[in-house]
């Protein structure tokens, strides 16, 4: 478990999903929304979180043929939030710095998914190994 400052991060509740096809995206987004509503997240942050989740889950489907997602309700001190972990066994990203740039896309798309997601959430972490896979973790605090 990671410590930030002096207060420890505690996982209150969690749920895991496997994403294999387009329909799973809708179900997953609805689950994320349910969790966000349950902790009393406002509609603006909810929308940002759902949009970020949507970007990452679509990347996972598009570039890695699917993967697994973990939804967690976390708390740190008096702050509550949602943490999402997207883990795939896809081709991996050779140059993360490049992938994080606005407009970079190998899929002839807008290239906004990763950098945009980073702007929408409170914490963003990406790890990728070519030939092994990619793991993206985001946190959105209730009032973050």
């Amino acid at each position: 478990m990671r410590h930030t400052g002096t207060t420890m991060l505690v996982v209150l509740n969690k749920d895991a999903y496997s994403i294999q096809r387009e329909q799973d995206v809708i179900l997953f987004r609805n689950r994320v929304k349910e969790f966000a509503v349950r902790i009393g997240m406002g509609v603006v942050n909810q929308t940002k979180l759902i949009t970020a989740a949507s970007e990452l889950v679509r990347n996972m489907l598009r570039y890695a043929n699917g993967g697994d997602v973990l939804i967690e309700v976390i708390t740190r001190g008096r702050e509550n939030g949602i943490r999402l972990t997207f883990k795939d066994q896809g081709p991996g990203i050779p140059d993360i710095k490049q992938a994080m740039q606005d407009g970079f896309s190998t899929g002839r798309s807008l290239g906004l998914g990763l950098p945009g997601t980073k702007r929408l959430v409170s914490e963003f972490d990406i790890k990728s190994t070519v030939g092994v896979g990619t793991t993206v973790t985001i946190v959105k605090w209730k009032n973050g």
């Binding site: 603006v44 929308t47 940002k48 949009t51 906004l112 929408l120």
Partner: peptide, 13 residues
């Protein structure tokens, strides 16, 4: 909607 507008801007669209 306002929340959509804010999100779209931050996403960079």
């Amino acid at each position: 909607r306002p929340e959509i507008a804010q999100t779209v801007v931050q996403l960079g669209i």
